[in-house]
Design a binder for these strands. Structure first.
Lengths: 85, 85
DNA sequence: ACATAATGTAGCATATACACTACATTTTGA
DNA sequence: TCAAAATGTAGTGTATATGCTACATTATGT
């Protein structure tokens, strides 16, 4: 293992899966090791801003949509209904 | 010196000065060494997301308003005029 | 002009981000 | 059910984020 559990939240896994990317594929897009993506998703370490900016670009969302000091809300059914076309 | 020049941009100094804080004061708010603030402002290293989230809270702006892969625009006179009440 | 505060520079020390390899476990699809 | 793909776990190694101390330089206010 690398770091210990970290004290903030991220939506990297959700965003990656939503885009149909494997860790391998996401890792290639931003030139990091696939394990690095895993550690971030499991909140086992605290990525740098540079890596976060690369993730942000690769996933097409801003930093604030991806990292937060507070837990992100779960997507509930009403939200899904609202976002349905 | 600690790290080398970093490949992205931040507005920490501008935001700090605008709020009338010294590095010492900002550092105390977020429990880091004042030199750490200096290194970030001079882009001499790549802070972690956790530190960035703390800065974000202390300065009252989102991550995207503080860090960017592209240079921030300079505040020009017309912008100042526009934002004047 | 002078004191004081704020900032920069330059070390050294420690923790950890991230790379990488190898193998175990889980998931997925045929 | 079985093979392949995706993910998790473990351990090692290196670079660097960050702490900290000390001194030099540059504002700032009086």
């Amino acid at each position: 293992m690398s770091g210990k559990q970290v004290s903030f939240y991220n939506r990297v896994k959700m965003l990656r899966v939503e885009r149909g990317l494997s860790r391998q594929e996401l890792a290639e897009k931003i030139n990091v090791h696939p394990q690095t993506i895993g550690y971030i998703e499991r909140q086992q370490f605290n990525p740098t801003i540079e890596l976060a900016l690369n993730l942000s670009k690769a996933l097409g969302v801003g930093l604030d949509a991806m990292f937060s000091a507070e837990p992100f809300e779960l997507v509930d059914e009403s939200a899904l209904r609202r976002s349905a076309k």
